[in-house]
Design a protein around this nucleic acid. Structure first.
Length: 336
DNA sequence: AAGACGAAAGTGGTTGA
DNA sequence: TCAACAACTTTCGTCTT
């Protein structure tokens, strides 16, 4: 942000900006306008426009210029349709850990045309055919490559079933690759290690899933996942902090169709419980469940222990134990 | 009758000798 | 390697609303 405030002469400029935005659909690429979601510090409006042609970041409502030196991250060429865009792009998709060769392999095109678009002679066609055949064979070559390809597809299947974001898949795939490098697969099933890598990836990206949730989509049982996870975590020196109960609140609250007020109350409850040392050593899901249970009662949107227990994946007994500890320490009794 | 409560026994994992 | 241990689960009978 600049120090000196600069405001365009509002009446004229605003009209002009509005006009440009109205036409945005037709001339978007021409004018390089883009809406972004940031709040205007002057009027609070969220309608900010990045005007790449003028290199300005300007508020649509009041004309306030937030920045007059923005960088256009887009390509320097223009394209008017998909073919042109593909033709002018000089890069492929980003390298990824989720494909066994990181998505960097060469593919030989199936058309019998050379790079100038001319048809290839029939003698060369035979050679091209052989080249293609070997290229395909080399791609998934030895056993380790095949195993890696299998493990990564398994990883992707589970991540999809749990609708996990892209970065978790990348992180999990990286963990798996490191496990392969260190020869940790030997004597363990590929599925087991892949699932453990997924669990580790989830923790690394702070989108914790419980072992139960992962086991539900895995082809190996929970015990096996836990054992393998501990093993590779130790070997790869993945020192994750224990999961905070707060990380589960939002997900479980929405699963129970509880309002944001309850969610906030639950988070506050956990915070207070943490300060009183009531959470250390206890299972984070149990603490989360108790906090949600308490919050749901306090906010008048009561859920039964059974309902909370089912969603969170602990028993009612555990909820009772946690919530008794918390309630007695806070001196609040929840019996209206 | 549903939900909450609590006792008792069992399970899986960690810790420390 | 083994026993002690804490957390958690399962099961079940009882109490409360």
């Amino acid at each position: 942000m600049r120090e000196t405030e600069k405001v365009r002469e509002i009446p004229v400029e605003i009209e002009e900006t509005r006009e440009r935005i109205r036409k945005k659909g037709e001339i978007e690429k021409e004018e390089r306008l883009e809406e972004i979601v940031v709040e205007c510090p002057r009027c609070g409006s969220r309608k900010l426009i990045q005007d790449y042609k003028r290199a300005e970041l300007v508020c649509e409502d009041c004309g306030f210029v937030l920045d007059d030196n923005i960088i256009d991250p887009g390509p320097e060429w223009r394209a008017f349709d998909h073919d042109q865009r593909m033709g002018r792009s000089r890069t492929g998709p980003p390298a990824t850990y989720t494909i066994h060769d990181k998505g960097l392999s060469t593919m030989i095109d199936w058309t019998d045309k050379d790079s100038y678009g001319k048809t290839i002679s029939s003698t060369d066609k035979a050679q091209l055919y052989r080249l293609r055949k070997w290229q395909r064979r080399i791609r998934v070559n030895d056993a380790t490559e095949r195993n890696l390809a299998f493990a990564l597809s398994e990883l992707d299947r589970m991540a999809s079933a749990l609708s996990l974001p892209r970065d978790v898949r990348e992180a999990s795939a990286l963990v798996y690759r490191r496990a392969v490098e260190k020869n940790l697969i030997r004597g363990r099933s590929i599925e087991g290690v892949a699932t453990a890598a997924l669990y580790a990836g989830c923790r690394e990206c702070s989108v914790p899933r419980t072992l139960n949730e992962i086991a539900a989509v895995a082809r190996v049982n929970r015990k096996e996942i836990g054992r393998t996870y501990r093993f590779i975590a130790r070997e790869l020196k993945l020192n994750f902090l224990p999961i905070s109960p707060t990380a589960y609140i939002s997900r479980f609250c929405s699963a129970l169709k509880l309002s944001e007020a309850v969610e906030a109350k639950a988070l506050e409850t956990i915070q207070r419980a943490k300060e009183k040392e009531l959470t250390s050593g206890k299972g984070p899901t149990g603490v989360a469940a108790a906090a949600i249970y308490i919050a749901s009662i306090v906010c008048g949107e009561k859920r039964t222990q059974r309902e909370v227990a089912d969603v969170v994946g602990v028993t009612e007994v555990t909820i009772r134990n946690r919530y008794k500890e918390i309630a007695s320490e806070f001196g609040l009794d929840i019996s209206p």
